[in-house]
Amino acid sequence: HITLTNLITEETTHVVMKTDAEFVCERTLKYFLGIAGGKWVVSYFWVTQSIKERKMLNEHDFEVRGDVVNGRNHQGPKRARESQDRKIFRGLEICCYGPFTNMPTDQLEWMVQLCGASVVKELSSFTLGTGVHPIVVVQPDAWTEDNGFHAIGQMCEAPVVTREWVLDSVALYQCQELDTYLIPQIPHSHY
């Protein structure tokens, strides 16, 4: 019994991606959610070859190996599938703050939850000092008015990073160091 759908849910078992011959794909929301959820992320060749051979072929032979941004053979989907007991964002409290493009905020929040993070909706909701690490995620190029994202640091004691930190961490299924993704914050004294 196979159901085809464009939506990823808890029940989804396989995410089928358009890939090149070496099982490398573009980074899409579907790709990120498939990895975050520990699903099989496979090339569409799995479907076409299975139909051709009239049997369901082994997914291992068709698993996506990499993507056009993070590298052609990083094995993120395999790492995620085999590490669902070791979520990459466990112990983190993440607030997805401000506008985002090409990806609804609720989907970004679901993605970080699938990776083990707790989501907070407001900067004031962080449970500071409880052994949980707060992180604010923003997408600077989605902000149309002044660079308000440079002043988020005044509203909460949390590192502010770009959305790329989430996307790179999920694609590779390895929590990336914050340093290269940090957004400089204007210190309090400048006000």
Score class of each variant (00 low, 15 high):
1 H>W: 14
1 H>S: 07
2 I>S: 11
2 I>C: 07
3 T>S: 11
4 L>D: 00
4 L>S: 04
5 T>R: 13
5 T>H: 08
6 N>V: 06
7 L>S: 05
8 I>E: 03
10 E>G: 09
10 E>D: 03
11 E>W: 11
11 E>V: 02
12 T>H: 07
12 T>C: 07
13 T>R: 01
15 V>F: 03
18 K>V: 03
18 K>L: 15
18 K>F: 07
20 D>K: 01
20 D>Y: 02
21 A>V: 04
23 F>M: 10
23 F>D: 00
25 C>R: 01
25 C>A: 12
27 R>M: 01
28 T>Y: 03
29 L>I: 09
33 L>K: 04
35 I>L: 11
35 I>R: 00
36 A>P: 01
36 A>Q: 00
38 G>S: 05
38 G>L: 08
39 K>S: 09
39 K>W: 06
41 V>Q: 01
42 V>W: 00
44 Y>R: 03
45 F>W: 07
45 F>P: 03
46 W>L: 04
46 W>N: 00
48 T>R: 09
49 Q>S: 10
51 I>N: 10
53 E>T: 12
53 E>L: 03
53 E>R: 00
54 R>F: 05
55 K>L: 15
56 M>S: 05
56 M>Q: 15
56 M>K: 05
57 L>I: 02
61 D>V: 07
61 D>S: 08
62 F>D: 01
63 E>T: 10
64 V>Y: 01
65 R>A: 14
65 R>T: 07
66 G>S: 01
67 D>A: 00
67 D>S: 00
68 V>C: 00
68 V>S: 11
68 V>N: 04
69 V>S: 05
69 V>E: 04
69 V>Y: 05
70 N>K: 13
71 G>T: 02
71 G>S: 06
71 G>D: 01
72 R>S: 12
72 R>A: 11
73 N>G: 09
75 Q>D: 05
76 G>T: 09
77 P>D: 00
78 K>P: 03
79 R>K: 08
79 R>A: 09
80 A>I: 00
82 E>G: 14
82 E>F: 15
82 E>S: 14
83 S>T: 09
83 S>N: 02
84 Q>S: 14
84 Q>R: 10
84 Q>L: 13
84 Q>N: 05
84 Q>I: 08
87 K>P: 10
87 K>M: 08
88 I>V: 15
88 I>Y: 01
89 F>N: 00
89 F>A: 02
89 F>P: 02
91 G>C: 14
93 E>H: 07
93 E>R: 04
94 I>M: 15
94 I>S: 00
95 C>S: 04
95 C>N: 05
97 Y>D: 04
97 Y>G: 11
98 G>K: 03
98 G>W: 04
101 T>N: 09
101 T>P: 08
102 N>M: 14
103 M>Q: 03
104 P>R: 06
105 T>R: 09
106 D>E: 11
107 Q>H: 03
108 L>A: 03
109 E>G: 06
111 M>K: 02
112 V>D: 01
113 Q>E: 15
113 Q>K: 14
116 G>Y: 03
116 G>L: 03
116 G>E: 13
116 G>V: 00
117 A>E: 00
118 S>T: 11
119 V>T: 05
120 V>E: 00
120 V>R: 08
120 V>G: 04
120 V>A: 06
120 V>P: 11
122 E>D: 14
122 E>P: 03
122 E>T: 08
122 E>A: 05
123 L>V: 07
124 S>A: 02
125 S>P: 09
125 S>C: 15
127 T>M: 11
130 T>N: 13
130 T>A: 12
131 G>T: 05
132 V>L: 15
134 P>H: 15
135 I>H: 00
136 V>T: 11
137 V>E: 03
138 V>W: 09
141 D>K: 08
141 D>V: 05
141 D>A: 08
143 W>E: 06
143 W>P: 09
143 W>M: 05
145 E>Q: 11
147 N>R: 07
148 G>R: 09
148 G>V: 06
150 H>R: 06
150 H>C: 08
151 A>P: 10
154 Q>T: 12
155 M>P: 14
155 M>Q: 14
156 C>A: 15
157 E>S: 12
157 E>T: 15
159 P>T: 03
160 V>S: 11
160 V>M: 07
161 V>A: 08
161 V>R: 04
162 T>K: 04
163 R>G: 04
163 R>H: 04
165 W>V: 02
165 W>A: 02
166 V>G: 04
167 L>R: 03
167 L>Q: 04
168 D>A: 01
169 S>I: 02
174 Q>G: 14
174 Q>M: 11
175 C>L: 14
176 Q>H: 00
177 E>T: 10
177 E>A: 10
177 E>Q: 15
178 L>R: 09
179 D>A: 06
181 Y>C: 01
181 Y>W: 03
181 Y>F: 08
182 L>R: 10
183 I>V: 15
184 P>L: 02
185 Q>K: 13
185 Q>R: 11
185 Q>T: 07
185 Q>F: 05
186 I>G: 11
187 P>E: 03
188 H>L: 06
188 H>N: 06
189 S>Q: 09
189 S>K: 05
191 Y>Q: 09
191 Y>P: 13
191 Y>I: 13
191 Y>L: 08
